[in-house]
Amino acid sequence: MIHQFCSITSIEKLNPSIIKIKFKSPLIAQSAKQGQFVNIRIDETSVPLLRRPFSIYYTTEEEVEIVVGVMGMGTKKLTHKQVDDTLDIIGPLGKPFKLDDGEDISILVGGGLGAAPLPMLFRSLQRLKKNIVIFLGAKNKEYLLKDYLPAKYISTDDGSEGYKGNIVSLLDNYLSNSAGKSYKIYACGPTPMLIELIKVARKFNINCEISLETMMACGTGICQGCAVKSKNSSKKYLLSCVDGPVFNAKDIEL
């Protein structure tokens, strides 16, 4: 966990509502693992008051990339930042995706901007020489995060790219037609998508890790704000920031 002021090295507008920000931090870049996040203070004013958490999208030796969907006042203010501006960043935070589950085929499923932690995961799995199949879904083609992700299966709600419909039904079809191998699903996306996805994972009895997006304040476990219902009898709630954001689907209730 590092608290640093980092300068922005590039800002790229992917489309009117998504930007990609790169900032310089060798410390964070080299210690970040797949699925972890950074908590960013937008500016020194109290509007917005809290930091905003962002999945680490990609890293190089020196730099960290995040993708920002412009949704509220905090993310809107981020779009006004410029190269060489500094960002107040705490990270890397949270538990990463686990890589050692021994599956034959790793299935990555991303929904919209929820796909943000998948490129790091894809790279880590590639280094382990895993057999990887990627599913990407979004409401339209502008929201498909295809950088770094050679997706074999693509869907959009409006049909602007790939299959018109839901990415989870594509996954269901794929699994119905492939027997005899062991799989693990790694997924990130909106909660309704994850709920459906967990049903499919359960139907085929597949180990499944999901990364959650929750409201967060501190990002370090002290405020206890980001509670997630636990299925474990000894603990009623888990915290998304320190117990997650990556959870095994069997451990939590959405």
Partner: peptide, 13 residues
């Protein structure tokens, strides 16, 4: 155990 989510929300300042 504390309260169920949502436990926090940001309001102006």
């Amino acid at each position: 155990a504390g309260n169920p989510p949502n436990r926090i929300i940001e309001t102006p300042s």
